[in-house]
Amino acid sequence: MRWGFLDNKLVQVVDVQHAYAGESAGDSWVLCGISLTVHQGEFVAIHGRSGTGKSTLLHIVGGILAPRRGRVLIGGQDLFQLGDRALSHFRNRTLGFVFQNYYLAPSLTALENVMVPALLSGEPVHRARHRAMDALDQVGLAAKAKARPGDLSGGQMQRVAIARALVNHPALLLADEPTGNLDEQTGGEIMDLLASYQRARGLTILMATHDPSVELHATSQLYLIGGKLQAGTGAVESAAN
């Protein structure tokens, strides 16, 4: 599947609403009509307090959670109208996801963790290994290829997760609080690493974060308050438009 980027618009979120089923008080709506457009090459940061729905928004944009209402268009394609194969292809080739909790498989080495998306894309094992080694090298962890996640620091694990997210050279990177579990210095290093990718490859980044250092790198910033997005600095089409 080829993703055409119409008018340079990579991601279009159209009136997305989502709620989690509540036990006694009814559904809890976290997203109350989010509309958002992210252009190719942008670095958009979404701020908000814990529990405001930042991760939920990223999960919906990443196609790993379906919204109750609304649409998500990637390159003009309605994501949630796709079948399982097409959606899986999108997650594997077009998207890279970096999670706050890294989600590295503890039984696989760092190299093998990075190989997973490459293998899922259909690469034979030896080619996947070669690509994964390149990706680890780019995040500065080639020497730790055979280490298991349990033997790595938080920052190193997040670097491995970034390498995994970028091994298939996706067009879009979603990062959910990538520095949330790291100290300030390490978090800064991770942010610098992501920004360098964004500049070098024209990567489009949508990041949910509390980290103030993102201001140095983001092209635009949004705030998720009360289930709605509010503009921060930078050019962004908001729900008001």
Binding site: I64, S88, N92, L120, R164
Partner: peptide, 9 residues
Amino acid sequence: GLLRAVGAT
């Protein structure tokens, strides 16, 4: 969940 999130059908 992770396998599916990184592209497994």
